[in-house]
Amino acid sequence: MDHGPNITTGKDYAPEYKSRLGLRLFLVYSILYAGFIIINAFIPRLMAFILFAGLNLAVVYGFGLIITAIVLGLIYNHLCTKKEQQMQAAESAGGQKP
């Protein structure tokens, strides 16, 4: 049984653009994450290597993954919002939907 939409949603602009962008950023993060897992699993002693300020690769890469997730999220939101606003502006300037 279909319960219908759970709410009335606002118009969703540029779904294809957002979905493509999302998949690209997902790929970037997946490569970083996979690299991290591979080093941890197969060359764990490399993680003891001191990079800077007395911090080793394990700590820098680990914090790096957390911070990268936040930064990629903010970039994604910025680009999506920009595109949504552009399309919205173009639509109101055009007066009607294509």
Binding site: H3, P5, N6, I7, T9, D12, P15, K18, S19, G22, L23, L25, F26, Y29, Y33, F36, N40, G62, L65, I66, A69, L72, G73, Y76
Partner: peptide, 27 residues
């Protein structure tokens, strides 16, 4: 390592799942 894995999961949620599944508009 658990912390890192638990957080990384959100990348999948954000970039792959969040908006498309919301667009489906179901419970």
């Amino acid at each position: 390592l658990y912390s890192i894995g638990y957080l990384a999961g959100w990348i999948v949620a954000l970039f792959v799942i969040a908006e498309p599944i919301k667009r489906l508009g179901k419970y």
